[in-house]
């Protein structure tokens, strides 16, 4: 289509005529950017060889099971080498351009415009019929399908939690055991100690480790009363709190015995053990629920009752006040 004898107007009858420039071999736009293309090419070749070496090294390292960092370094060397080589080739060895292509005028011809206007205004005279019944049935079918398609999504949400978030497995008389299954005797801990306890038999289950987990702390004085109404919840200095932080549920295992502070490691909520785990600092909105304790006839620690409120972080339908039928 183009003519190589200098700038010439091209006209093949279908488009508005334009003047196209003629390419010349000494055009500066066609020259590569590099001042010494041969030297640059050798350098890029070396980079690509390094890349090939890196990729092969990765293959060997993978098959031979070398360390992760060897895999990482070899892959990095390989991909960086090949990538740098490719990019440098494009930047420094290709014609640098820029190349501009003149554009034909975009507006349509007069005949095309009149034909278009006629087609739009006279559409009603086109022979394709509207079929209302079929259209309606199709709409109904697609709509129903849309509704039915949501059913698997809804079921995959799982069963409604029901009472699961309100109740734990701690009941009246549940024995406290450690992670190894050993029940906690009243003489087992010295003042200043802390141990994580679970309901008997549930120490290895999911619900036991998730919602039932409780920290048992022994403080120095044996007649600790954390709050009014909890006079007999802490026998012999043993006091138990839910291990689920009331902020976002992290296990509050960090106990500082001299400060008598339970600290949550996630967002640093600090709970005062002596006052019923009231948060002294941090984002926790309410105290850790306390598990009332009792010492049974053989000297083992048991729960006097379950928790009198839901454990863990809040959600909008839960109440923050303890239940009325809580501990006696």
């Amino acid at each position: 289509m183009s003519d190589h004898d200098g700038d010439v107007a091209v006209d093949d009858g279908t488009r508005t005529p334009v003047a196209l420039p003629v390419a010349r071999f000494d055009d500066p736009h066609l020259q590569p950017l590099a001042r010494h293309p041969a030297r640059t090419e050798r350098l890029i070749a070396l980079t690509m060889l390094a890349g090939i070496g890196g990729v092969v090294w990765f293959g060997v390292a993978y098959v031979q099971n070398y360390s992760s960092w060897v895999l990482g370094v070899s892959l990095a060397v390989g991909l960086l080498g090949l990538g740098f080589g490719l990019t440098a080739w494009g930047k420094y060895l290709m014609p640098q351009g820029p190349f501009v292509e003149e554009r034909h005028t975009l507006s349509s011809t007069e005949e095309e415009r009149t034909a278009m206007a006629a087609a739009v205004t006279e559409r009603t005279q086109v022979v394709v019929k509207r079929r209302g019944v079929l259209g309606g049935l199709l709409a109904a079918g697609m709509g129903l399908f849309g509704i039915v398609a949501i059913f698997p999504l809804l079921r995959s949400l799982g069963p409604a939690p029901g009472n699961l978030l309100e109740e734990t497995d701690w009941k009246k008389g549940t024995r406290l055991v450690t992670i190894t299954g050993r029940p906690v005797h009243r003489d087992a801990m010295q003042p200043g100690g802390i141990v994580t306890v679970y309901p008997l038999g549930l120490e290895k289950t999911d619900s036991g480790q998730a919602t039932d987990q409780t920290v048992l702390i022994r403080v120095q004085d044996t007649d600790l009363v954390t709050m009014k109404g909890r006079e007999d919840w802490a026998p012999d200095g043993y006091v138990a709190y839910s291990k689920m932080c009331t902020h976002l549920g992290c296990p509050v295992g960090l106990y500082e015995q001299e400060l008598e502070l339970l600290v949550c490691p996630c967002h640093q909520s600090m709970f005062n053990v002596r006052d019923g785990a009231v948060p002294q600092f941090g984002p926790a909105p309410r105290p850790l629920p306390q598990l009332p304790l009792k010492i049974d006839a053989q000297g083992y620690l048991v729960a006097r009752d379950g928790y009198n409120q839901a454990v863990g972080p809040g959600y909008w339908s839960r109440t923050s006040t303890p239940r009325q039928n809580g501990a006696q």
């Binding site: 003489d187 010295q190 200043g192 100690g193 141990v195 702390i217 015995q257």
Partner: peptide, 12 residues
């Protein structure tokens, strides 16, 4: 021995 603020782990 539970030095300082570290809890003292004995019987358990």
């Amino acid at each position: 021995s539970g030095p300082g603020n570290m809890p003292r782990f004995t019987g358990n």
